[in-house]
Design a protein around this nucleic acid. Structure first.
Length: 275
DNA sequence: AGCGTCACCCGGACGC
DNA sequence: TGCGTCCGGGTGACGC
């Protein structure tokens, strides 16, 4: 379940290259393999194939959980959803069973979109804003201040957890970082957004940014079947640690369901009522 | 209108 | 071995 830190880690690797592969910008798409055409959200797969052939990657960016690839004409966008992974690998390397969408590049390289669950989506758009305009602010951006977060929180009367997961409220936060942020902020996931005092808003702002930055520092988390080099999973404070002691106070971490999502919190550090 | 809930898409993991 | 169930990101349908 790649979230902001995982997607950003992938973007950085593709943008800058490394010992294992060159940077993606400058490479040309010679061919594509579409083994699961439903990966292609827009345009229709046959048109997608026609229009992407011969395009050159001009950059690599991230917006929320989207990878954004400006091309010499149009923009390629990829959402990894739950199980997606993206890698630049030598084309001689054998394809994995989940490499459903593959971009064959010049110089003997493949950009492979592996996706066991097949929930991922690929877009080729003239105007990427069509997709990105509804996203909320970037939580690590300059304009995401405690003040702006407070104003946004007070516009809603929602539980904090589902609000953090709402991509129109803030972009890039998923289940892991929502739980980690609320723990750092010492706020119960069911607290109402419009009932937060100023100091609590500030704690949430700091907790959210600290959790995301910690994830970035560790190159993201590698959990379940997706390993991409990150090790933030070894530093979770509450996520998937139900029954284990809270790293702050030792109380057993509890797991509840909030908005159909597994939610992990410390009942002592994150009291239901203001604390 | 705002909010909560549920179904959907998938398949690996897990429990019985 | 072979079921049924759970899980989750984002979206859309529905009901209050």
């Amino acid at each position: 379940m790649p979230e902001l830190p995982e997607v950003e880690t992938i973007a950085r690797q593709l943008r800058c290259g490394g010992p294992a592969h060159p940077p993606l910008p400058g490479r040309v798409i010679d061919a594509v393999t579409l083994r699961w055409p439903r990966h292609i959200a827009a345009p229709a797969p046959h048109r997608f194939r026609r229009e992407i052939l011969g395009r050159t990657f001009r950059g690599v960016a991230r917006r929320g959980k989207y990878l954004v690839f400006p091309l010499d004409r149009g923009t390629l966008l990829i959402h990894l959803k739950m199980s997606g992974d993206l890698g630049l690998v030598p084309s001689v390397e054998p394809s994995g069973p989940y490499d459903h969408t593959v971009f064959h590049l010049d110089g003997g390289w493949d950009l492979r979109f592996g996706d066991a669950r097949k929930f991922g989506k690929v877009f080729l758009l003239d105007d990427p804003d069509r997709l990105l305009v509804s996203l909320g602010p970037e939580p690590l951006g300059r304009d995401f201040t405690a003040r702006s977060l407070g104003r946004a929180l007070h516009r809603h009367a929602r539980a904090l957890k589902p609000l953090l997961l709402d991509q129109t409220f803030v972009a890039g936060v998923g289940n892991i970082y929502a739980d980690e942020a609320l723990h750092r902020a010492r706020l119960h996931p069911l607290r109402r957004s419009n009932a937060l005092k100023d100091d609590e808003v500030h704690r949430l702002w700091r907790g959210l940014r600290a959790a995301l930055r910690a994830g970035l520092r560790h190159n993201g988390a590698s959990i379940d079947w997706v390993y991409r080099g990150g090790d933030f999973q070894n530093h979770f404070r509450v996520y998937q640690r139900d029954g284990e002691p809270c790293p702050v106070c030792g109380t057993a971490i509890r797991r509840i369901i909030v908005g159909q999502r597994g939610t992990h919190y410390c009942p002592t550090c994150q009291p239901r009522r203001k604390g």
